[in-house]
Design a protein around this nucleic acid. Sequence first.
DNA 1: CCTACCGATCGGTAGG
DNA 2: CCTACCGATCGGTAGG
Lengths: 234, 234
Amino acid sequence: MARRQQKQTSHEEAEETRRTILRTAQTLFMEFGYRAVSTRQIADACGLTQPALYHYFADKKALYAAVMSENLTEIGSALERISRRGESVQERLQQVARYLLRNVQNDHNLMFHDIRYEMDAAVQDKLSETFRVRMIAPIAAIFEDGLQQHILRDQAQGGVDSVTATYIFLNVLTRFLPRGPRQQPVPSTSRSSIVEQAETIVHILLYGLANAEEETLKRLESPCMQNIDPANSH
Amino acid sequence: MARRQQKQTSHEEAEETRRTILRTAQTLFMEFGYRAVSTRQIADACGLTQPALYHYFADKKALYAAVMSENLTEIGSALERISRRGESVQERLQQVARYLLRNVQNDHNLMFHDIRYEMDAAVQDKLSETFRVRMIAPIAAIFEDGLQQHILRDQAQGGVDSVTATYIFLNVLTRFLPRGPRQQPVPSTSRSSIVEQAETIVHILLYGLANAEEETLKRLESPCMQNIDPANSH
DNA sequence: CCTACCGATCGGTAGG
DNA sequence: CCTACCGATCGGTAGG
């Protein structure tokens, strides 16, 4: 029973406008950074005048905080879903990499910088905790699984803790993130490329850049050791 | 008030002031980013008035470009010196990591962002090339050594090219860079910490986070292999 | 959600 | 290397 007239309910329109502002501002803030985006740019991109923004958000900082909060929550839901799957550590890390390569634009370090230098202390603390809970924790849980299964080295074996591993993972991933304006997903080529990139990222992260030592020796000496089998996750 | 009396020191003073501006601006630009640093902040930190800056640099962009150019050249000289040493790939990478951990503040990605979004196309091209030649090339040369010695996997073996390896290296290193205002070097504790961090970074980069399977096997079987021999570099 | 407008600050210039 | 000052743009407000 749609009771919508030519003019939508004002509440629905307002909510839709609010979503438009959030989505538009997210794109701009993520690409250019907080200071480089003016409230007039955001309003123009939404088809509004600049003062209209202040009907939906108290000020520019509140808008930025809302954008970050919604963005982190959305990403976090996907990461938590992946993290809880019963698949292998390697497979889950690849799924995380694929998700982030597809859905995150630009560097999380730029976001860090803006949060640290542009937000007030209270907002800063709140967003930092949201980042830790929504983004870091789900990925770190995967690494924690790997540590407990002894698939990954612990700190006594020259490894790192799960949170450090997560940050290293995100930083490696940064190298493969698309820079600049977000292009719409190309169906075939780009998607297979993302799958390959995710495999490369996780493989480098887990096994490093070095030739496994028995691989090198196999060419020089008689093989005294069986082949590496990276397929067996456990 | 002392009048300007010695013409001999006039030129030297001017040069010293120029150096002061460059050094001060570098610290501020690196920490806060291009847009977040006003010309008045730079001038104040130098003990000058803001218009005085324009005696030494044409405008803010030219000052930023000069800062980046000098900074990259200085870092590049050190990297080239390390790169040309006859030591092993692993040792040189650790030396690079130690140098960057000691001498670079904040993320190179922030610098990228500023160059890309704040500079004109001509300056952008020039600084990008300086970055590639001074910073990327020397490190990539080390990885290239490793590839040719078959210490590192090539792309057919699931590895990456030397330039990609360099960017991954820099991104991993980002995780360990000190954030925020640069603290002066603390003699003992901080320096040994940097050495340890450099070891961790290179170890993770080369060997990954996973428990090496031969490590697991080595505890079960007799060791049948030696360390990598880096002597065949030349 | 608009028009009109505010003070603050920005990068940069004039002139000595 | 200073004082004085400019136009442009910023985030934000008043009032309907």
